[in-house]
Simulated scan of single mutants.
Amino acid sequence: MPGGRPRAFDAEAALDRALEVFWRQGYEGTSLADLTAAMEINRPSLYAAFGNKEQLFHKVLDRYFTSPGAFASEALEAPTAQGVVEHLILGAVELTTGPQSPRGCLSVNSVHACGPDSEPIRREVIARRMAGEAALRRRFEQAADLPVGTDPRVLAQLVYTVTDGIAVQAASGCTREQLREVADLALRTLFHSPG
């Protein structure tokens, strides 16, 4: 006897549409009605394919960090610490101001707009951020080109502070050109390059 009826929708495309809604509105600002409308499915199909809203958000986070946000893990492969930082900061500008994506950053938007009922989501996003920062610190610990006296832990925290700030500014309406100027100044300052 054949298995259940095949899904009448493209689960990957629906997940991409859910990502866009969460990115634009944050976790707490997104309702199930918003999701089902954007994903073009009904609630039973959403639950069957993705679980509840929280489970769907976890899948969206995985998608975000391996697709539009993949530049962050790719940056760790740069041959120098300076290259890593450039890739991260310039990547943050591109991600948060891209013409095909919502302004700002999914994880930053979701952490800052979570009430008590969404605390598990907030903790999950913070844990992913901390894991990324720890990976960046480890990469800096291996770097031969850090400026003398630079603490890899503090530099990793500074870079994440800059990229999060870029996301907040992008969500507030700063243009790509404005944020590119900020990024260029940050990079010159960090690595003492002449302007």
Results as ranks from 00 to 15, higher is better:
128 R>C: 01
100 Q>T: 14
156 A>L: 12
162 V>P: 08
4 G>S: 11
127 A>R: 15
124 E>P: 09
38 A>H: 02
121 I>K: 06
194 P>C: 07
72 A>R: 14
46 L>G: 00
181 E>T: 09
97 T>F: 02
191 F>K: 08
46 L>E: 01
184 D>Y: 06
102 P>R: 04
10 D>C: 04
48 A>C: 00
2 P>C: 08
26 G>S: 02
115 G>A: 03
145 D>K: 11
125 V>S: 08
84 V>S: 12
140 F>P: 11
82 Q>M: 13
48 A>Q: 00
22 F>C: 01
10 D>L: 01
102 P>I: 01
6 P>N: 10
189 T>L: 15
133 E>W: 04
190 L>T: 10
34 D>R: 01
117 D>K: 10
191 F>I: 07
29 G>E: 01
53 K>G: 05
183 A>I: 10
1 M>E: 11
122 R>I: 10
138 R>P: 01
51 G>S: 06
122 R>C: 09
46 L>R: 01
177 E>Y: 02
87 H>E: 14
181 E>A: 15
31 S>N: 00
141 E>I: 03
5 R>K: 10
165 G>M: 08
40 E>R: 15
144 A>R: 14
33 A>D: 08
194 P>S: 09
172 S>I: 00
102 P>T: 00
110 S>R: 02
107 S>M: 14
46 L>C: 00
105 C>N: 13
66 T>Q: 11
76 L>F: 11
14 A>L: 02
105 C>F: 06
67 S>M: 05
173 G>I: 06
180 R>Y: 07
44 P>D: 00
96 T>N: 12
181 E>D: 15
34 D>P: 02
4 G>V: 00
175 T>Q: 05
137 R>M: 13
172 S>W: 03
82 Q>C: 12
108 V>C: 07
168 V>A: 12
37 A>L: 11
148 V>L: 13
47 Y>R: 03
129 R>T: 08
26 G>H: 02
128 R>H: 09
80 T>N: 05
65 F>A: 13
75 A>M: 12
124 E>A: 14
34 D>G: 07
89 I>K: 05
128 R>A: 04
143 A>E: 09
2 P>I: 08
162 V>F: 09
71 F>D: 05
60 V>Q: 06
103 R>D: 07
181 E>C: 14
12 E>I: 10
189 T>R: 14
94 E>W: 07
179 L>G: 06
195 G>R: 15
7 R>T: 00
126 I>W: 10
81 A>K: 11
1 M>N: 08
57 F>W: 12
43 R>T: 11
188 R>N: 15
130 M>E: 15
167 A>H: 05
56 L>H: 05
146 L>T: 07
